[in-house]
Amino acid sequence: NARWTTEEQLLAVQAIRKYGRDFQAISDVIGNKSVVQVKNFFVNYRRRFNIDEVLQEWEAEHGK
């Protein structure tokens, strides 16, 4: 399903906090979204969920 429920959106943001840009890991956490759908989520929801800021926090924690 290409549509993202609110629950899936929140799950994705939590997974980004945990896995950074590991699209496969994020896809696995959500369970019903492909890697391509996760990559599209990054692009389409970047502003709404401040994904750049979430990634900066992840990179700071993981030394990337």
Rank of each mutant, 00 (worst) to 15 (best):
R3Q: 12
L10D: 12
D22S: 03
A60C: 10
V36R: 13
I51L: 15
F42D: 02
G31M: 06
Q37G: 04
Q56D: 06
K33C: 02
W4A: 05
V43R: 12
D28L: 07
R48L: 12
A15E: 01
D52G: 08
N1F: 15
F41T: 04
W58G: 08
V43M: 07
E53T: 10
L10K: 11
S27T: 02
I26Q: 01
R48Y: 11
R46A: 14
E8Y: 03
A25M: 15
A25T: 14
V36F: 12
I30F: 11
A2Q: 14
K33A: 02
S34V: 00
E53G: 14
D22Y: 12
I16V: 02
V36S: 14
V36L: 14
F41P: 04
D52M: 03
V38W: 03
A25Q: 08
A15V: 03
R3V: 11
I26R: 05
L11K: 10
F49I: 12
L55V: 11
R17L: 02
T6A: 14
L55M: 09
R48N: 12
Q37M: 05
D22P: 01
R48T: 14
N1E: 13
N40E: 15
Q9V: 09
N32K: 09
L11H: 05
V36K: 12
F42E: 00
V13G: 04
K18A: 05
A2P: 11
W58A: 07
H62R: 12
V54G: 05
S27I: 08
N40T: 09
I51R: 02
Y19Q: 06
V54H: 07
T6M: 15
G31Q: 06
V54D: 04
W4I: 00
F41K: 01
V29G: 01
Q56P: 03
E61F: 06
A12C: 15
Q14W: 11
D52E: 07
L11R: 13
Q56L: 12
S34R: 02
K18C: 06
V36M: 12
Q56S: 13
D28K: 12
R21V: 10
F42V: 07
V38C: 02
D22W: 04
A15T: 06
V43Q: 14
Q37A: 10
F49A: 13
K33V: 00
N40Y: 09
S34N: 09
A12M: 14
A2L: 12
